[in-house]
Design a protein around this nucleic acid. Structure first.
Lengths: 200, 200
DNA sequence: GTTGCATTATGAACGGTGTTCAGTTATGTT
DNA sequence: AACATAACTGAACACCGTTCATAATGCAAC
């Protein structure tokens, strides 16, 4: 194993990922470039392409880590709530809290589009599906008289709604200011939806 | 007024806008470039910059036209429904129908980010606000016991929700196929929200 | 030590992007 | 016919993602 620098392949991999997270966190998805990442870790672009297939690959991996952190946080904070309804509201709060704390990193998950004919890898789709499953599980105890299919649909509708509030809020299209206002909007959406859903 | 070609400034302006709409419609926002637009209308890039400040300007104008078409359609189709609740559901349906018919054009409204420090012009923000106002107006007859402030909030929450469903559906993140499934999801979201909202 | 080899890293090159602007060309007016 | 002015061009700039021949290095064998 001949090596020229002090870093192993895995180390460079990790360095690139966290450098990307820093750059995106500061300058947003638009401010990201291969040369910037390479420069930040003290290597050249060529080296980056020894460790990643291409920029899409790098970005997907960063987005994967973001989803992991988000998921972990939602699981953890949701567990604090004892009542089912409170747990669902908490999921929304955690989601929005995260998006507001790391807007650029969070937005990149949705701003990024794969180049050309490339397809979203399965491991990434699983991370997304996991989020929906969390909502579905949270919804189950509140939907005794509904079929599993109905619950799955309701979870999708509900979570898409929360996501919509979040995405419009983060991109300043809602005329509301501050995290609390966004939380209130979500509470309104989730609360009223649940009320309607449980009485049907 | 010395002119060399057969087209006036206004004509070139219009040609560029519709060429952009065609390119984006076929190849998506990513497939758009100044040289492509210029080539499509038989001019060079330089000419494009005589008519538009920059690409952001061009894209904003195209997005403005898209919002106009969307708004006109929502107003028109909503008027067909006599009951307040049906009108609200119709708004959602029209929105989704439009997004599914012209996914690329519709998505560009939300994919596009202004370069650097540029700011969204007021005329554009007004077009967005107009959409929320439509929902707000539709919600009023159903919210007799609610204050105007509450109605405004509810309209934002509701519309963000519909938008969320729409955006996840168009980018294939919902595991649902076909326009009808998306319509069902929206009906579920809007229906249950309204049921909850009206009983509170 | 020295040699040879496989690994690691480079950076120039390619075709693309948005944007600018000096220079050319065609037109309307004098 | 000459001039002024508007219209238009296209080369140039700095950036982008991506590739790859080349150089530099560390290690094993001799």
């Amino acid at each position: 194993m001949a090596r020229r620098s002090d870093h192993s392949r895995d180390q460079i991999h990790e360095m690139a990922l966290s450098a990307t997270e820093r750059i995106v966190g500061e300058q947003g998805y638009q401010g990201l470039s291969a040369r910037k990442v390479a420069g930040a870790i003290g290597y050249t672009v060529g080296t980056l392409y020894l460790v990643f297939d291409n920029l899409d690959d790098l970005i997907l991996q960063v987005n994967g880590r973001t989803l992991d952190r988000l998921y972990a946080r939602m699981v953890q904070e949701q567990a604090k709530q004892k009542q089912a309804k409170e747990r669902l509201l908490q999921l929304g709060h955690s989601y929005i809290q995260f998006a507001c704390e790391e807007p650029h990193t969070w937005q990149m998950i949705f701003e990024h589009r794969l180049t050309g004919e490339r397809e979203i890898p399965e491991w990434f789709q699983l991370k997304v599906a996991r989020m929906f499953a969390l909502v579905e599980t949270g919804l189950e105890p509140l939907a005794a008289q509904h079929s599993p299919g109905e619950i799955a649909l309701a979870a999708r509708a509900l979570w898409s709604g929360v996501h919509g509030v979040c995405i419009l809020a983060v991109s300043d299209k809602l005329d509301v200011v501050g995290v609390e206002s966004v939380q209130n909007l979500t509470d309104l959406l989730v609360g009223n939806f649940l009320k309607g859903f449980m009485s049907s």
